[in-house]
Write a protein that binds this DNA or RNA. Structure first.
Length: 495
RNA sequence: GCCCCCAUCGUCUAGCCCGGCCUAGGACACCGGUCUUUCAAGCCGGUAACGCGGGUUCGAAUCCCGCUGGGGGCACCA
């Protein structure tokens, strides 16, 4: 039997890291088995679902490289792939259940049910639906209808008396006592299906063989198993994974960091690094190794190896890993680094729209000079914003440390004149000028290097000074040195 | 309240199923040192964990029981 897995997002927001993580394992499993991965849109919550979010989610999956064989955009043999377009399928399944007596109409109102729930709480016993609509006579039903009540449909579970076993691929066998279950609603009074129902119907109709999902679904699984049995269907194999936690050990939320895949994309993370990192949050393919290409992950993936505990999202490790990938791209494919830097450049106001050929070439040179300092795309701004600004602003601490001695004014002025006089300011020439000047004055090179760095970049950290001077070019170096000289003289007179 | 899941360095984890090779391994982070014009990267070194209590056994991180702690479910949400 061909393996078929799926991920079923609700288009009520951007693709969440946790969702992408879960989808990734479903995808990995399908790919490792030569099976199919299906994307299904669970948009029955019409108030919150939007077409924009659906498009954004698809885009983010595309960017991640998580490809789907069937889905709302590409179609497939088991379509449609949006739940709102599948309502007739759920209706047919509900009719079957009703005809078999495995489900029944319930006329209880929300208020009546709330009263039952309150009483249960007051008596300190677990709430379970009383079942008073279980055996309604046609006359009683007609009476309710005359009152204007619209019924929901409930699955009949009360006859169940055997232990329900869920054979979880990562947790082993988990047993549930059906006495704790109650007749639950599968179709709302407006005729739309509820999650536990639509999900079962879709997974069966789409021939899904394996489902990897969050542990929050484990407790719902026995309910679903009863439905599979009532419908005469075989349930898929399941594996439940714990949820990713934030640094506060609570479920990943905005409070502790970015939660949308889109955020990471914007900051300049690489999809292959994110995927590699995702894998390591649940599983180590080999003992002493962290870096794996996606094909390697596909080749080594085994559901049973997945961890059972909740991983904490360690941003530092992701950044480190992204840096590893960035460095390997430096020689292999620097354009991809440039690409990863673009969003951050735009956000910082250092670039507008798509770069033209000249801008692109310049950004490439900046990337080359910054080199391994760029671990994440946004680092181009942190380390190299001065390459994109007309004038530099000195960081207060940098100016205090390296641009406070008035005697520097003369030194920088001399350097400025020599820079202006040189025919071509390449790195070698820059080094010659700086070191030559240091030697003449009996100074250590660093005594000139540091102040010049601050004069040109405003910072104490950054790429090698001579490389940076070469890229800045003669004119910009000269004018920035002028500005520094003026700054030094001004602060002296002011002091 | 009832039911379910989980538990190794600060973090991700290896080891656990099939007890001894575990003086518990690797990675991130952290702390030194080295290289160096700064930073980053690199290299070398270091700190750091089997939640607790009982068993079983010659021997337990590994098996059993209990406890504690964390998470989840018990919706006309997904």
């Amino acid at each position: 039997m061909t393996v078929r897995t799926r991920y079923a997002p609700s288009p009520t927001g951007l693709l969440h890291i946790g969702g992408a993580w879960m989808a990734f394992f479903n995808w990995l499993f399908a790919r490792s088995q030569g099976g199919a991965f299906v994307l299904r849109i669970e948009d029955t919550d019409r108030a919150r679902s939007t077409a924009e979010y659906e498009r954004a989610i698809l885009e983010d999956f595309q960017w991640l490289g998580i490809t789907w064989d069937e889905g709302p955009d590409v179609g497939g043999p088991y379509g449609p792939y949006r739940q709102t377009e599948r309502l007739h399928i759920y209706q047919a399944a509900a009719a079957t259940l009703l005809a078999r007596g495995a489900a029944y109409h319930c006329y209880c109102t929300t208020e009546e049910l709330e009263t039952e729930r309150r009483r249960a709480r007051a008596e300190q016993r677990p709430y379970r639906y009383s079942g008073r609509c279980r055996e309604l006579t046609p006359a009683q039903r007609a009476a309710f209808e005359r009152e204007g009540r619209r019924p929901t449909i409930r699955l009949r579970l009360h006859a169940y008396d055997e232990i329900i076993a869920v054979d979880d691929l990562v947790r082993g066998r988990v047993e549930f006592d059906p006495a704790h279950l109650d007749d639950y609603i599968i179709v709302r009074s407006d005729g739309t299906p509820l999650y536990n129902f639509a999900n079962v119907v879709d997974d069966h109709e789409m021939a899904i063989t394996h489902v990897i999902r969050g542990v929050e679904h484990l407790s719902n699984t026995p309910k679903q198993w009863v439905m599979y049995r009532a419908l005469g269907w075989t349930p898929p194999q399941v594996a439940h994974l714990a949820n990713i936690l934030g640094a506060d050990r609570k479920k990943l939320s905005k409070r502790t960091g970015d939660t949308a895949v889109r955020d990471y994309r914007r900051e300049g993370f690489l999809p292959e690094a994110l995927l590699n990192f995702f894998a390591l949050m649940a599983w180590y393919p080999e003992e002493h190794r962290e870096i794996y290409s996606v094909p390697e992950l596909v080749a080594r993936f085994r559901i049973e190896d997945l961890g059972r505990a909740s991983p904490v999202f360690d941003l530092d490790k992701l950044i480190w890993m992204n840096g590893v990938y960035m460095r390997s791209l430096l020689e292999r494919d620097p354009d991809r680094i440039v690409e990863a830097c673009l969003p951050a450049l735009r956000e910082a106001g250092l670039l507008t729209g798509a770069p033209d050929a000249a801008q692109r070439a310049y950004i490439s040179r900046v990337v080359a000079v910054l080199g391994e300092r760029i671990k994440v795309g946004r680092d181009i701004v942190a380390y190299g914003d001065f390459f994109f600004r007309e004038t530099v602003t000195y960081e207060p601490e940098a100016a205090r440390r390296y641009l406070s001695d008035p005697r520097l004014a003369d030194l920088l002025a001399v350097l400025r004149d020599r820079v202006a006089a040189v025919p071509v300011l390449d790195a070698a020439a820059a080094e010659g000028l700086v070191r030559g000047l240091a030697e003449e004055r009996g100074l250590a090179a660093r005594e000139i290097v540091h102040p010049v760095r601050v004069a040109l970049t405003g910072k104490t950290v950054g790429p090698g000074l001579f490389d940076l001077m070469a890229l800045l070019g003669r004119e910009r170096v000269a004018s920035r040195l002028d500005a520094a000289v003026a700054f030094l003289r001004h602060s002296r007179s002011g002091a």
